[in-house]
Design a protein around this nucleic acid. Structure first.
Lengths: 229, 229
DNA sequence: AAGAGTCAGATTGGATCCAACTGGTGGTCC
DNA sequence: GGACCACCAGTTGGATCCAATCTGACTCTT
């Protein structure tokens, strides 16, 4: 019967739509760390009951974007300087592994897309698009890793630190972006050469440098105190 | 008014009780990988409606004990040999980090408990109690790490491989347990000496040896095919 | 005027009913 | 006889209502 063109978003489940909406709002910085998420308001905005929102908040908890406390509801986690440093140490250790597992399975189309994304990163006009493309670039290199719980853990680590990447970029300005571009170039070269060891150590150095640089900018975390309100 | 002594388990929420029940059933091997979890049956057994069970299944998903597919429900994840090998590589990289973060914060009571657990491991009569104590020993060494998402990730890795540890122990018998005991002894010594570096490399060697030994026993995974039914 | 107890509004947790989807079964048509 | 389609039981997803819990402000006491 309904061969008709899909009207808006009919096929996707309400809980999935709610999760997608909140995920985007949190990653884009619209909803800030420490902020409380009331089920009723979200349900109202999406035109559904509270139940799909409850599901969505659990889904986001799996992705590390919210945390839950009994009878008190969901919040976006509020991380301190030590938390973020440890997360970057986790990234240093896990992402080279994810890359090693993924690299032999990357196909020609993947490599094509990686080149394209890298070009677009270099021409990205603002911080928001830079962050989005940077995330897309790295996660695409891990895309064929295809083993749980490695994939989901790496994604969670990216989710947890997205907010601080944005603050850091905003504070320090675009001055350091040429370093990132150079490192991406080295990484992509190693991937093209199918040099797993080289790519892994490139990547580790990239993450390590970012971590140490972040440690030299405590003001990134100081600004968080206001979010507790 | 109700100063009365608490009767059984009134204070804990139904979703928490359901999660605890299922968690125990999965970790003990009562529910096997690949098995489907129907909400109605569980709700009936617990004397609640399906809603707390839905919550519980999401909570378990956060802990890596179940996986969810839209309109099809929850299953216990079914892992292959490569998945488990990658999980052990993750453990090799993450658990030394967790230990490094936790060690300086361990207090006298923690050390006391560790010694006690180690003694009980050596005297553990059967596989089930050995596995339970081994888990308790390692997770206690990470207990003071106290930073997310490191703690939860380590726990998830342990949850995901619990089933294979049991099969492995059952297949190979108690012959190799003296090695485990010796390694635990070395680790505990390093912890007592507050030698973070030594403890970390001890631990890494312990996990690595287990991983390589597991790789030499493919029959551990072959037995999984039957569970798909 | 400072502190603790108390009460009402707001918010989350759970029960019940209904709707949508899945997978298999049997019938029909070629 | 085989393939396709409609139907049906079983299961999950969502809506609505009610109960339990938390929050914050107000009052009463000292």
């Amino acid at each position: 019967m309904d061969i008709g063109i899909d009207d808006a978003t009919p096929a996707v489940a309400a809980s999935q739509r709610a999760a997608a909406y909140l995920r985007d709002a949190i990653l884009s910085g619209e909803i800030k760390p420490g902020e409380r998420l009331r089920q009723e308001g979200i349900a109202e905005r999406l035109g559904s009951s509270r139940l799909p929102v409850r599901e969505a908040l659990r889904i986001l908890e799996i992705e590390g974007l919210t945390e839950h406390e009994a009878n008190k509801g969901a919040r976006v986690p509020l991380l301190g300087a030590r938390d973020v440093d440890v997360i970057y140490q986790m990234r240093e250790r896990l992402e080279p592994l994810a890359l090693t597992e993924s690299m032999p399975r990357l196909n020609a189309i993947d490599l094509e897309r990686l080149s394209e994304i890298q070009e677009r990163i270099e021409r990205s006009p603002d911080i928001a698009s830079f962050l989005r493309l940077d995330r897309e670039f790295h996660l695409l290199t891990y895309a064929r890793c295809d083993t749980e719980p490695l994939s989901s853990t790496v994604t969670r680590l990216w989710n947890s630190t997205q907010h601080f990447r944005r603050i850091f970029m905003t504070l320090t300005g675009p001055g350091k972006r040429w370093i990132v571009n150079a490192e991406h170039g080295l990484l992509l070269d190693a991937i093209r050469r199918e040099d797993a060891e080289g790519a892994a150590s490139c990547l580790q150095a990239h993450i390590r440098r970012t971590r140490l640089e972040l440690a030299r900018h405590p003001e990134v975390f100081a600004s968080e105190l206001s979010a507790v309100e």
